Amino acid sequence: MHTMWKGSIGFGLVHIPIKLYAATESKDIRFRTLHEACHTPIRYQKYCPVCDKALESDELVKAYEFAPGEFVTVTDEDLNELKGDAAKTVEILDFIDLSEIDPIYFNKSYFVGPAENGEKAYTLLRKAMEETHKIGLARLTLHSKTHLAAVRVYEKGLLLETLFYPDEIRSVDQVPGIDSDLPVNERELDTAKQLIEQLATAFDPKKYTDDYRSALEDFLQAKIAGQEVKKPKQAVQKRNVVDLLSALEASIAGAGRNERPSASKAAHTKKKAPLTLNKKKKA
């Protein structure tokens, strides 16, 4: 596994040498852009329109645009000086309960592994956090940015999850329509709660798959093998549901017959057949 970052975890006067490793990976299937005439992959060049020429990497500098068309340049040395010692330290600021962090703050996950001569201190920290049921709220510099992060026990090791800062989270008040406090029918509410209880289950991540990626992989393999690619027809679901209560009751009835749709199909159905509240049939 590729080491993405080397440094130490620091809390109080304790410093534990560590390494960070990517805990997740993108499974997205990426496409290249080709020249249609000869099927050659195209190249994107860094080009200066004033000098009318393509540029090499050593001809480029970083700059901040403080006003339209006006820049101040900065060097890597300038930025490294600002980072100081924080560039190589995961500094734990506080120990808190994981439940205190809303999931909206979580950004990206990294496995934390001990570096050379750090195994004993690493194990001590992991066991102490495990027995106190606490996580570390930390700060570190990663990819030229200072992050907040949560350091927590994950299976037999430690996991670091970068967090958004509070000012990076948009206010929910910006969402149109959420201030509409419409009256809720008690029967509809009770039926909705009944449906939730009926569909409630323990979280098992293994049963959720990316159906589109799997279909795309099969499609591409068939193309590679020179097979005829067949596109399946999309079934059209007929619905006679005219109000929210009927939809909930129909869902409960369907759940009772084990007609529970997959997560991806449920999301697709929501988009295709939005329900309206107390919509009456026309005479």
Score class of each variant (00 low, 15 high):
137 L>W: 09
113 G>D: 05
172 V>I: 13
153 V>G: 06
202 A>Q: 15
166 P>E: 00
149 A>R: 03
184 V>E: 07
112 V>F: 03
204 D>Q: 12
166 P>I: 01
183 P>V: 15
145 K>W: 02
129 M>K: 02
191 T>V: 12
146 T>R: 00
184 V>W: 02
133 H>N: 13
194 Q>I: 10
211 D>H: 13
217 E>I: 11
140 L>I: 08
189 L>G: 02
160 L>S: 11
137 L>R: 07
144 S>R: 07
166 P>Y: 01
114 P>I: 01
205 P>K: 09
143 H>I: 05
211 D>T: 15
128 A>N: 09
144 S>L: 06
205 P>R: 11
157 G>I: 09
136 G>M: 05
205 P>A: 10
110 Y>V: 07
135 I>Q: 05
133 H>P: 03
148 L>I: 03
114 P>V: 07
196 I>R: 13
167 D>T: 10
174 Q>G: 07
192 A>N: 04
191 T>A: 15
149 A>K: 00
193 K>Q: 13
158 L>A: 06
177 G>Q: 15
185 N>G: 05
149 A>E: 00
137 L>V: 08
158 L>M: 13
169 I>N: 00
112 V>P: 05
146 T>E: 06
120 K>G: 05
166 P>M: 01
140 L>M: 14
119 E>D: 09
216 L>I: 12
142 L>K: 00
165 Y>F: 15
173 D>A: 12
122 Y>P: 04
149 A>N: 04
147 H>K: 00
137 L>C: 06
208 Y>H: 15
189 L>E: 04
197 E>K: 15
180 S>D: 14
126 R>S: 04
158 L>C: 03
215 A>C: 05
205 P>D: 10
167 D>I: 01
148 L>P: 02
219 F>Q: 03
157 G>Q: 07
120 K>V: 14
161 E>A: 12
152 R>T: 09
165 Y>W: 14
209 T>Y: 01
110 Y>F: 12
110 Y>E: 04
212 Y>E: 11
121 A>R: 11
188 E>Y: 01
152 R>H: 07
129 M>P: 04
177 G>P: 12
154 Y>L: 13
178 I>T: 11
203 F>Y: 15
200 A>G: 01
180 S>C: 10
123 T>R: 14
157 G>L: 09
124 L>N: 10
185 N>R: 12
181 D>E: 15
134 K>L: 08
167 D>S: 07
213 R>D: 04
151 V>T: 00
151 V>W: 02
163 L>K: 02
159 L>W: 02
175 V>R: 11
187 R>Q: 08
207 K>Q: 15
186 E>D: 13
208 Y>N: 14
184 V>S: 04
217 E>H: 04
164 F>D: 06
208 Y>F: 15
168 E>M: 03
216 L>F: 10
148 L>C: 05
167 D>A: 05
134 K>V: 02
113 G>T: 07
219 F>L: 13
212 Y>H: 14
143 H>L: 10
191 T>R: 02
116 E>N: 09
206 K>I: 09
159 L>S: 03
207 K>M: 13
117 N>I: 05
190 D>Y: 10
165 Y>L: 01
189 L>H: 05
135 I>W: 05
146 T>A: 06
174 Q>C: 12
140 L>D: 02
